[in-house]
Design a protein around this nucleic acid. Sequence first.
DNA 1: AATGAATGAGAGTTCATTCAT
DNA 2: AATGAATGAACTCTCATTCAT
Lengths: 221, 221, 221, 221
Amino acid sequence: MARKTSTVFDVRRTPTQSRSQVTLEVILEAAAQVFSEHGYAAGTTNRIAQRAGVSVGSFYQYFPNKDAVLVALVESRVNAGMRSVESLLSDAVGTEVDLEALLRSFVTAMVTLHGHEPDLHRVLFEEAPHPPELHECVLQTEEALAHTWLSILQQLPRVVVSDADTAAHLVVQLTEALTHRFVLHGLHDLSTEKFIEEVVTLLTRYLMDPNPSIKTPSIQT
Amino acid sequence: MARKTSTVFDVRRTPTQSRSQVTLEVILEAAAQVFSEHGYAAGTTNRIAQRAGVSVGSFYQYFPNKDAVLVALVESRVNAGMRSVESLLSDAVGTEVDLEALLRSFVTAMVTLHGHEPDLHRVLFEEAPHPPELHECVLQTEEALAHTWLSILQQLPRVVVSDADTAAHLVVQLTEALTHRFVLHGLHDLSTEKFIEEVVTLLTRYLMDPNPSIKTPSIQT
Amino acid sequence: MARKTSTVFDVRRTPTQSRSQVTLEVILEAAAQVFSEHGYAAGTTNRIAQRAGVSVGSFYQYFPNKDAVLVALVESRVNAGMRSVESLLSDAVGTEVDLEALLRSFVTAMVTLHGHEPDLHRVLFEEAPHPPELHECVLQTEEALAHTWLSILQQLPRVVVSDADTAAHLVVQLTEALTHRFVLHGLHDLSTEKFIEEVVTLLTRYLMDPNPSIKTPSIQT
Amino acid sequence: MARKTSTVFDVRRTPTQSRSQVTLEVILEAAAQVFSEHGYAAGTTNRIAQRAGVSVGSFYQYFPNKDAVLVALVESRVNAGMRSVESLLSDAVGTEVDLEALLRSFVTAMVTLHGHEPDLHRVLFEEAPHPPELHECVLQTEEALAHTWLSILQQLPRVVVSDADTAAHLVVQLTEALTHRFVLHGLHDLSTEKFIEEVVTLLTRYLMDPNPSIKTPSIQT
DNA sequence: AATGAATGAGAGTTCATTCAT
DNA sequence: AATGAATGAACTCTCATTCAT
């Protein structure tokens, strides 16, 4: 249908986000809220649509089914988190690195990440069914982080591990898992600061040669 | 009234409870299977009853609602696992312990545990809703294991941690989490043996003083 | 099975009530309680049996189905009530009657009757389904009472009604209905005494010739 | 935006609500039929939906649960009945009233009302469970009618009752109860006309001073 | 006679999804 | 594109009744 009203003055458009792009994100945000509040099963498509201020019909114009929102949501959150952590690590690649400091930034970033929308996090990663796509997304992200960590470990002479690749993965998984638990369910009355320090200690001891003079040839990949 | 029929052959008594007990366990086992195959949401009460070879009515004679089976299932699995690991650790309390060997047994036991019914494990701990009772059960178990670990750590002079209680919890949580992931989703093509060794290494380095001569007074709780 | 233990001394038996008669009444009483507390639909046969201290199986040995208890219960209550009111009225037949006093006794008796087990009454007569048998029972009772009333009215020269039979039925129905409502749901804050007086007034005015000297030939059936 | 299409013929608007309104009434009517035929317990929501020509889902879009239809049904019937009777009585307030004639119209209206859908009436008021809302509705209606009657009685000098308010309530309750019974279960083979006359006689004698010259100051509220 | 575990049809209700408007 | 009424399969759970013991 021709837009009669489009005039010369009709220039002020946000070129980056089309209308549908906006609607899509409104729905996604609504889903985030609804899932946080009601959980996955009780987070019905009608509720999501209502919260987004659109009709169910519109919902299904943007997402083929309920699971699709879940996937989109996980991807958006994972990618966002991934970007922030990735940039943190990437900065370290190729420079002289203080491993302990880097680990501290890393763990801190993970805690921040998990602390951002903890309820949503719980729903997304603990309650909702995990279709293979989701898993793929999470695994890829982890893979990417582990890959970056591998580069970092390899440039540190004092790192002592039998298999740097495995070590890199363990660092990522371990931090993820412990952080997740800590943020969601706490650990006694341990303060966040102490928690971070303890994990940093753990990781440092794992990765660092405590006795540099003896064992020199450190990394074997 | 005199019991005339009581004879030496009167062995075949069906103890009133045994039938019910059997049915209950049949249902529980059926639920384990159905949840494993279909997931929690699609593991309907009718399907469970059918698999158990009883009617839905019977199901509801033994469990007040669907969630109750979930709880019963988790409790049975967690308690069983807990018993085996606890006995392993308890044996070490009060004896001269080779920490690394103990950690190896511990990690191995955890791998075995998670490897027993991995699909069920996934459903129980990742997919299904976690009513507070469930969480309580899991936390208590973890607490118990951490407590035992604390005893062990405290009797080892070479253990060097700032807070033995936190360390004990981290040991349990970390092993649980990494093992869970490894069994369910694997880690590259890492063999189970190598995985275990790496985790043992990680834990050993975390807990053990690598340079015993220098720092002697190790534990401060 | 022969009762070996029955001896010469076994004389002390209550001959009026056999064992099963007792059980039957225990169940009936249990049903009355359960229906009162839970209503008809939620007054399950299992609950009734349990309350009676017998098994469901036994319940079905005494009653062919749930409705049968209802019927038995209504019959027992209706007959009991009927007996007391009937005797009250019968005493008046053939004697010189003070109509107003008789009405007062009658209404009072009805209030007492309805006030005895009001909850049960509500369930029995308002909530539960009324199989034709039930209805029959109630109608017959009413018929009997109306019949007695008819006799009474006919022997009272001052009673002025066009159709004594209809009047007799109205007296019974009206008293029943108003009493029922009053006991179950009250009428403002009217005291029971005042309620009775008002109904007596109502009935007296209906039945009595206020101006005896003018209209003499009163009853035509 | 200019509405080009708005023309004189733009009559065919389907007011957004009309469709829903129709569906709602279709369901209500279907419920009335189904309850009449099957009773409350056997009048299942699926049957109602089917009879209404809609799906169960639609049923639950209009009513939160089964009881809600019952309440809606009672309210619709009671309000309708109430309106017709109220208007009848209201017309009499403030005018010179022939009490007997008014009572005759009143009783006749009640008979008509109860005779309209007697089966439904039975289900609604005898068989179905009465949630408090229902009771409230019925009581309010009765209260309103009694209130109007009170006004009428107070303007009639020949009315002789000790408590006009109570009398008004008795008039309403009594007529309701007797009519209900008569329509549902009959009274011998009494014709409707004779029944009405008898009730009118009863009420007239109750309310009217048979000997106007003697007791003049009649009402004390 | 008594038991009570077992039955299973069927109830009320939900919600992802469709489609006429 | 958008709407939201309509759909209906599928779910959890109940309870009158049966029957092996």
